[in-house]
Write a protein that binds this DNA or RNA. Structure first.
Lengths: 236, 236
DNA sequence: TAGTGGTCTAGACCACTAT
DNA sequence: TAGTGGTCTAGACCACTAT
């Protein structure tokens, strides 16, 4: 792996130390100048590594104060178990769930995709874009990205038939999934897919799903038509 | 605006030139070294500006070849990245939580309030509107409605001090809470409370909270500034 | 006041693309 | 072969935080 850029190697090392609690949640990281010296790189290079982890939400920068390991544990556990799946909701409403493939392509990942899938930018991925319908009405526009290394030469129809089944057949087991929900006013392309008027709101969900060994296997972005879909949660 | 970092000024200038088609979709941008010289900055600084536009999906880098203005039509998934990148930074962490009361009133419930609280329309309720801040910045606008029969003559300061504590002190115990999340483009009043520009998106949450005897005790509507708040979920 | 992250410089070498 | 973006260096000064 010594052909990986140094800043990626440092990122991985830092991520590993956070995962192993060598750097604990909420604690302050050693100063950039200190880390740079430890890794024997310039401060700019060290900052590249940190920037990636900041983007992932694993680190938080506080100018003048320091860089902190984010305490994600709290927010997550605080709430929201039992989010309901798309098909479940459609079924509960007596609607027929369907989905239509728009795009199926193999390509090099964007920086964001690579970072969320924890792969190198020259490692190929497959991206599937599809629209999900409830009773013929577009409800969600979904963009899924998966490393080729995981699914190999999966084709369109295998994918349509169910990614999860495909992976389970190959002996992979699913672990956790991390989701983030926000609200956006989507751009023209997304509006078109969802039959939305420009200016309407959409729920935007980003999800990274992991295998039992904590390796990410898919990164999904989904836009839900704001007026046709809602998440139902129950807290106990 | 000369106190804005140079790389942000350059980003804005480049974005403007793309918008005005001075740099046309699909065309190649001048080389980084050329642009750096034009803007009279180092190449690293120029690259910071470009990196932001790449993250937004407005530019695409092709190593060895050049940097291109993305052709929005084609590259759907590429474009979608940009919507997230900014918001990600706004994480609700390490920020000081505050809240400010806007309204505290006793009144007869609306049909929706009565139905959610499972009370009669002539049974009085108390409504509290407040804005919640994270580090001085408005994050959420919350409208809570409670039956008077439950809290009696609770006053503003008792309410501010914590509704839940107040109820627990009186021997009530909390059960489940049911939530529903959707996306909306909020009206003028809500925008004002949250310092939003009209047309921006907000997460809209409706929650009904129950006591252990399954009697509803509060009905809450909350608007979260779409660009300042996200829900994090973890599924297992 | 000492330490921190934010920004910026003026270079350098690399692998890759395009010709 | 010339040009390109990718990476990296070894500094510098700044505003801000924490004490």
């Amino acid at each position: 792996m010594s052909d990986m850029p140094i800043f990626l190697q440092i990122r991985d090392d830092l991520a590993e130390k956070i995962r192993r609690q060598h750097f604990k949640g909420g604690s302050r990281l050693p100063a950039e100048r200190v880390l740079a010296e430890q890794y024997k790189v310039s401060r700019m290079t060290l900052r590249q590594a940190i920037a990636l982890l900041v983007n992932q939400g694993k680190l938080i920068r506080k100018p003048g104060s320091g860089t902190y390991v984010s305490d994600q544990e709290k927010e997550v556990s605080e709430n929201l178990k039992g989010i309901t799946s798309f098909t479940q909701i459609m079924q509960s409403q007596g609607k027929k769930a369907q989905s239509k493939f728009i795009v199926f392509k193999r390509h090099l990942p964007s920086a964001i995709e690579a970072s969320n899938l924890e792969i190198d930018r020259n490692e190929e991925v497959i991206t599937i874009e599809r629209v999900r319908y409830g009773d013929e009405e577009p409800i969600a526009f979904e963009i899924t990205t998966i490393p080729v290394s995981l699914v190999g030469n999966i084709n369109r129809s295998q994918m349509a038939h169910g990614l999860y089944e495909y992976l389970e057949d190959r002996g992979f087991h699913f672990g956790k999934a991390v989701q983030e929900i926000s609200a956006v006013v989507p751009n023209e392309i997304v509006c078109k897919r969802l039959n939305l008027t420009l200016g309407q709101a959409a729920l935007f969900l980003r999800q990274t799903s992991y295998l039992t060994d904590d390796k990410p296997f898919e990164f999904v972005k989904t836009y839900y038509a704001g007026d046709r879909y809602r998440f139902y949660l129950e807290k106990h």
